[in-house]
Each structure stands twice: as C-alpha cells, then as structure tokens.
C-alpha cells in the first residue's frame, strides 16, 4: 500500500505548495519562529555569563559590536518583524477579519517589514559611521 501520510509525504507536498501566499506565509512564520527560539536560548546563555564571570560578559559584548554581529542583529530584527507582523495578520483572522483578503494583507505587511528593516539598517549604519 502506498503511503499517504507522514513527514516525507508532507515535506514533498508542502514545498510544492510553498509558492502559494498562504503556505509561504505559514512556512515563513514557522521558520522565523523556530530561529527566534534558538536565538532566545543563545541570548540567555550569553547573559548568564554575567552570572559566572563579569569580565567574560564584557569581552563577549565587545565581540557583539563587530560589524558581522551587527549584520546578524539586523537579520534577527528582520525575522522578528516578519514573525510579528504575520502574527498580527493571524490574529486579525482570529478576530474574523480579512479572511478573504489574506494575500493582500500578507504582502502589505511584508512591505512594512522590509521598510522597517531598511530604516533599522540606516540607523545602525549612521550610528556606527559606516558612511
């Protein structure tokens, strides 16, 4: 009997459907969410250094102000904005609103996300004197 359920079956089909706006939004929400959870634990691990050794904490903080980590911060900010704005979209649906306008709502919010990331990049670059 041919399999009609399970993780490999799901993966194959969900990737094929991932160009549809709703599925794309769902997968993006899921991936950004999981990445932010990973970041949360790393973030807490770093703060915990203060508990163990204050000097190490300061050293690590200096490392984090390097351009590489600042770019990573912007990536994190982009992830948070995408997850947060799409989260607002989901809660509007939960209130029974815009369910027939889900695609327009998604792309509209993604424009907001992109603009906010550009503004954040500009702010960081100005503060650090990158230009």
């Amino acid at each position: 009997m041919e399999k009609h359920r399970g993780f490999p079956y799901y993966t194959k089909r969900v990737l094929r459907a991932s160009l549809e706006t709703g599925t794309f939004a769902h997968l993006l929400h899921r991936i950004t969410g999981l990445l932010i959870v990973v970041y949360l634990f790393l973030h807490m691990g770093v703060i915990s250094l203060a508990f163990i050794n204050g000097q190490t904490f300061d050293d690590v903080m200096v490392t984090f102000s390097s351009p590489f980590f600042l770019v990573m911060d912007l990536v994190l900010f982009a992830g948070v904005m995408i997850h947060g704005l799409n989260g607002i979209r989901i809660m509007l649906f939960d209130m029974g609103l815009f369910t027939r306008k889900q695609k327009e709502l998604f792309w509209g919010l993604m424009v907001v996300a992109i603009v906010s990331v550009l503004i954040a990049t500009w702010l960081v670059a100005t503060a650090k004197g990158w230009w």
Partner: peptide
C-alpha cells in the same frame, strides 16, 4: 511580546544605537 519587545528594543538599541552594552 509586541509591547515588551518594542520597549526592550527601543530602550536598549534605538535611543542610543552607539551605546556599548556592558555589565
């Protein structure tokens, strides 16, 4: 989270982006 995170990011990174955070 929207409320608290907004506060967290504005207070720590937005008001003075050039400030170094140390212990």
């Amino acid at each position: 989270l929207i409320v608290v995170l907004l506060f967290h990011m504005i207070a720590l990174h937005y008001i003075d982006p050039s400030a170094e955070i140390d212990l």
